[in-house]
């Protein structure tokens, strides 16, 4: 790891001020991706601004019938929150299956969403639930936020402060974890909200995406039978030593049907 200047932010505003003018500066949430990246010398930030002390960035609030979760809220806290378990149980379950217990004690929702790893779990929930990403400067709808491989709509120095989720009528997330890394080979979040039905897929492509054909079919008939004949095109899907694009396309169908069944229970 190359050395860097380390700063502790006391608040979101403090973090923004610390990052200002530092074009090679990076914010650190839980560090579960950033620290391994630094170790591999894949990044060389001049400055690292630690957000752990920014108390205004953590916590879970019930708001407008849904939930607003602070960016620095750890996966373990989301997984065990009675508020999340009663309002969006699918989200608590998703958080409880990220990485391992030690990673869940450090990793944060804001860090995961800002990083937009193509196999991360949270982006699927954010997109399927039609969540709103609140940042230090604006509110961004999930559909406008994810821009492909590790890319988001966040501008330079812009930080996620919290994410607001509406309460769904039905929702479930099912993933097929890689047996070694436990990252999602394919993960599908299905949600039925006031805004309609959404199906968001992670792990299969360069970034999280929706499957319109399944959404349309599920809007008419919310059952796994309604989507059993829908084939997901292999165009642009990941093909690597863990599985071909065809394999992943097939898994999207299987995971989506399991998610619909789980959401219907």
């Amino acid at each position: 790891m190359y050395d860097f200047a380390y700063h502790r932010a006391k608040s979101a505003a403090d973090a923004t001020a610390l990052l200002k003018g530092k074009s090679e500066g990076r914010a650190m949430a839980g560090g579960m991706t950033l620290i391994p990246t630094l170790k591999q010398r894949l990044a060389r930030p001049s400055d690292v601004v630690d957000l752990a002390g920014a108390k205004d960035l953590a916590g879970i609030k019930a708001e407008g019938g849904g939930l607003t979760i602070g960016a620095m809220t750890r996966h373990g806290a989301v997984a065990t929150s009675t508020e999340v378990k009663s309002t969006i149980p699918a989200l608590a379950s998703l958080a409880g299956h990220i990485g391992d217990p030690q990673v869940r004690n450090r990793g944060t929702i804001g860090g995961s969403v800002a990083n937009n790893d193509p196999a991360a779990d949270y982006p699927a929930a954010v997109l399927a639930l039609g969540a709103t990403i609140n940042t230090t400067t604006r509110k961004i709808a999930a559909d406008q936020f994810f821009k492909g491989l590790f890319e988001t709509a966040l501008g330079e120095g812009e930080l996620i402060t919290s994410i607001s989720f509406p309460k769904p009528e039905k929702a479930a997330y099912v993933k097929f974890p890689n047996p070694a890394s436990r990252y999602a080979m394919v993960g599908v979040f299905v949600a039925k909200t006031a805004g309609g039905v959404r199906v968001a897929v992670t792990g299969a492509g360069p970034g999280v995406f929706r499957v319109k054909a399944m959404e349309d079919a599920l809007a008419k008939n919310f059952s796994s039978a309604a989507i059993k004949d829908i084939k997901v095109p292999t165009d642009g899907l990941n093909s690597d030593i863990h599985g071909s694009a065809e394999y992943r396309a097939h898994l999207v169908g299987v995971m989506a049907r399991r998610a619909v069944d789980a959401a219907s229970k």
């Binding site: 380390y6 502790r8 560090g31 579960m32 620290i35 391994p36 170790k39 630690d50 752990a52 373990g76 391992d100 217990p101 030690q102 990673v103 004690n105 450090r106």
Partner: peptide, 28 residues
Amino acid sequence: DTSQCGACVVHVDGQSVKSCTMLAVQAE
């Protein structure tokens, strides 16, 4: 040394963490 094996697990403020994936300054 890649936060997978867990040989480095310690408790920080009562929670188990992988001490190979946490900076010493974060434990201030």
